[in-house]
Design a protein around this nucleic acid. Structure first.
Lengths: 232, 232
DNA sequence: GGGCTTGATGACATTTAGGTGACAAACCGT
DNA sequence: ACGGTTTGTCACCTAAATGTCATCAAGCCC
């Protein structure tokens, strides 16, 4: 995404913490963009495409758990939570809502930096960004969040895109119900296979010539779905 | 690797912590394998292919940072560090050595569980790899759940696939009735050999040129079935 | 505020796979 | 060759898995 300096979206209302992070992280080679509340944070996520999110749990407009869940619906970006609350229950809730790490105040800039680096390492070992995937007449640009069928761009909703990107990342292999449900809706929904039927149906409707006889989005009964690999 | 239960390699010398983790994590759906020192831990990493590593920094034989670095050389597996030391400098060193997370003792089993889940979420977004098994004109890709005969893909139902994978995993050797029945239908069906006849019949129908004279799926009368190994 | 898009949910239709019994064929020792 | 045993095949029924349609609530963009 940003080869030179990784971009952190900092969602934090407290001025003091913001200044502290801005200088300390800035010196360690990150670029910081800031939001003072949950709403602006979410919209900046869409517009500015940061590499990481650092989120304070105590925001003025929304509670932190909801922001986390919403972030997860919108993107797979790594999220590190900052919070004054150190009770185990708070940490569990945040992590289960989709956060990747949880750090309690007060904390040192060095530790935060190392934890962010660790997250970035992980994500960079994942799928390569900004690569065009193609199978048959279907093209998917994961980085740009764009999908083409017969060179015509198709409108894709966030959930549809996340399902599709799971399939693209392991094209030819089966994505299990379990995997798709946990990655998109969270571990507590592994039984809601209904969701998959609905959204896979919508994807087929948009991408397949004949949704009843899919060429790309294949069903593996009892297991999951598979993106078929075809020649161009 | 293990689709049902993720496997944790626990490298920890303290007996008490080991027992604590074994019971508390075991109840949350993980499978735990244990090593008492760094050397065994590293060798178990190679042999047992766990999904995650939980590593105590204070081991008898090697210092924790070296173990972490060595782990990183060997694999991309997620590593969570446990340690009694809570100084920032220790955390930074461990994280920079390649660890993904760092948790200080004492800690709650719930938090550890959620942190491990978070790591697993991340890693599951990588690429699975597939291996091809081949005998004669029959090819089986277990990871991709695909079966080919004469380079033509064959549709396989879940039960058929499970039977076939048992045979593939021990190609050339006999899979007993008992083994197949317990693995696919559960131990309470060891007498329902009828099931095997039906589904082996269906597999032959799909895979054999002449199902009456099978070249691949051979019957071992009174014992079980065997997948014949041929040259390509 | 009002139209539009998206996500969630329930009811229902459709497709596919699993289980069952009857019977045929192959095998094995005598 | 014979009878009992083991294995294979067929057709059918049922249950489970999947797909579709319609609807409602919430958020978003003018």
């Amino acid at each position: 995404m940003n080869p030179s300096k990784p971009v952190i979206l900092l969602i934090e209302d407290d001025q003091q913490t913001r200044r502290f992070l801005k200088t300390s992280l800035g010196h360690k080679g990150w670029r910081i963009i800031e939001a003072g509340d949950g709403k602006t944070g979410l919209s900046m996520l869409k517009n500015d495409k940061p590499d990481l999110v650092v989120l304070d749990l105590g925001l003025p407009d929304m509670d932190g758990i909801s922001v986390t869940k919403r972030l997860r619906q919108l993107s797979d970006i790594p999220v590190l939570i900052l919070s004054a609350r150190s009770q185990e229950q708070n940490k569990i809730m945040a992590l289960d809502a989709g956060a990747d790490d949880y750090l309690t105040k007060p904390f040192g800039a060095g530790e935060l930096n190392s934890r962010l680096q660790a997250l970035l390492r992980r994500i960079n070992r994942g799928y390569p960004v900004s690569e065009l995937f193609q199978t048959g007449q279907l093209k998917v640009d994961l980085a740009a969040r764009k999908v083409f069928i017969n060179n015509q761009e198709v409108n894709i909703t966030p959930i549809e895109f996340r399902l599709l990107s799971i399939l693209v990342r392991q094209a030819g292999l089966v994505a299990t119900h379990r995997q798709m449900l946990t990655e998109v809706w969270g571990a507590e929904h592994i039984n809601d296979q209904h969701y998959l039927r609905i959204y896979m149906g919508q994807l087929r409707h948009k991408l397949e010539i004949n949704p009843a006889r899919p060429r790309y989005l294949l069903t593996e009964i009892g297991v999951g779905y598979r993106l078929a690999v075809h020649e161009a």
